[in-house]
Amino acid sequence: MTGWTLNEKNLVATAAAAAPSVHNTQPWVLEFHEDHEVRLYERLDRPLPHHDPLGRDRLISCGAALEHVRLAMRILGWLPQIALRHDGARVTTTGRAEPSTVDRRRHGAIVARHSHRRPFAARPVAAALRAELLTAHHTDGVGVRRLYDDETPALARLLHHAALALRADDAYQRELAAWTAPVRDPLPGAGVSSAIRRTSTLPWGGLVRRTTMVPDVPTLTGRLRGELILLLETPDDGPFDHVRAGTAAEQIWLAAVDTGLAGALSTQPFQLHEVRAGLVEALSLSGFPQLMLRFGHQV
């Protein structure tokens, strides 16, 4: 039986804490066990009943944290193996190996990753980068669907509807306010920054507040056409699918950061049944859409 050193625990815990989570609630807890095993459990004491009534975003967040744990263990020279269980996720080791160059670069991208809440530069993502991101994840059971220019009007209509619905939802707005911290950089688990209120957020890339300006559908369509937009879908819509979607999304996002792109993950619109159903119909999806990733170059 071999244990963890304090430095090893700190490396893994710090990586997990840097994972994106819904409203920055950090809805997970880590346990360190013998033989370099890590267990990640979903925290049920940080519910968001109006934003995330089914807990889907909470599990997507846990999936992103799992990817950070995996990368940290690779940096420590372990070969991690993830098993999803009904009582949480178990990360065990199958041996030792030096981390690859990709492992090191993706782990390094963790500290550089942040949500880009402004328009991207008017420079399209190169075809080679688009192709790289479409194959950047290695999570079974998750499909990646790129949106093309002729599909953006349908997406714009659905996102426009979602933004108006969330902006007018009193319960949603009270819940968001409760998870808003009066600092620019809240600690992990302390909510989102109140500074976001004072920026010109975009309703498909940032949090929808009372003051969020929602562009009309033609304007929104034009803006979407300047971005690389990826939809992640799963064959089913159970808890394991949600965790896997979060893991795959974070793998893609870190790969994008490593190439110099800015990005953001959006799940808010997917909480509305009519938006998810509309995406399936408009895009002829074969699975369940779980989230949207946006990428581009910073201004």
Results as ranks from 00 to 15, higher is better:
residue 60 I to A: 13
residue 63 G to Y: 01
residue 24 N to S: 10
residue 58 R to L: 12
residue 62 C to K: 02
residue 20 P to C: 11
residue 44 L to W: 15
residue 42 E to R: 07
residue 61 S to H: 06
residue 62 C to W: 04
residue 70 R to M: 02
residue 56 R to D: 12
residue 53 P to A: 14
residue 69 V to G: 02
residue 28 W to T: 13
residue 49 P to H: 12
residue 20 P to Y: 12
residue 63 G to F: 01
residue 52 D to W: 02
residue 65 A to G: 14
residue 47 P to L: 10
residue 36 H to Q: 10
residue 35 D to E: 08
residue 25 T to Y: 01
residue 52 D to C: 06
residue 19 A to P: 15
residue 27 P to A: 06
residue 29 V to N: 08
residue 41 Y to T: 05
residue 37 E to M: 08
residue 33 H to C: 14
residue 48 L to W: 10
residue 67 E to W: 05
residue 67 E to V: 04
residue 63 G to W: 01
residue 71 L to S: 02
residue 77 G to L: 02
residue 20 P to E: 07
residue 24 N to Y: 13
residue 25 T to V: 03
residue 70 R to A: 09
residue 19 A to M: 11
residue 61 S to I: 12
residue 19 A to T: 09
residue 71 L to R: 03
residue 29 V to K: 15
residue 68 H to T: 04
residue 54 L to K: 13
residue 64 A to H: 03
residue 44 L to G: 12
residue 44 L to Q: 15
residue 34 E to A: 13
residue 40 L to P: 00
residue 76 L to Q: 15
residue 48 L to F: 15
residue 62 C to H: 03
residue 45 D to R: 15
residue 28 W to A: 04
residue 78 W to R: 15
residue 25 T to S: 13
residue 49 P to M: 13
residue 45 D to Q: 10
residue 24 N to D: 14
residue 44 L to C: 14
residue 67 E to H: 10
residue 75 I to F: 03
residue 60 I to R: 02
residue 57 D to R: 00
residue 59 L to M: 08
residue 70 R to G: 02
residue 33 H to D: 08
residue 56 R to V: 10
residue 33 H to S: 07
residue 35 D to M: 14
residue 27 P to T: 09
residue 33 H to K: 06
residue 72 A to N: 03
residue 50 H to F: 11
residue 52 D to G: 11
residue 28 W to P: 07
residue 72 A to F: 01
residue 37 E to P: 00
residue 22 V to M: 06
residue 24 N to V: 09
residue 36 H to F: 12
residue 78 W to D: 15
residue 73 M to Y: 08
residue 73 M to R: 01
residue 70 R to C: 15
residue 22 V to C: 08
residue 27 P to F: 05
residue 76 L to V: 07
residue 26 Q to V: 05
residue 26 Q to R: 00
residue 46 R to E: 11
residue 52 D to P: 09
residue 45 D to V: 10
residue 32 F to N: 05
residue 36 H to A: 09
residue 58 R to C: 11
residue 69 V to S: 03
residue 22 V to S: 13
residue 46 R to G: 03
residue 77 G to S: 06
residue 58 R to T: 14
residue 43 R to G: 11
residue 42 E to I: 06
residue 38 V to Q: 03
residue 62 C to M: 13
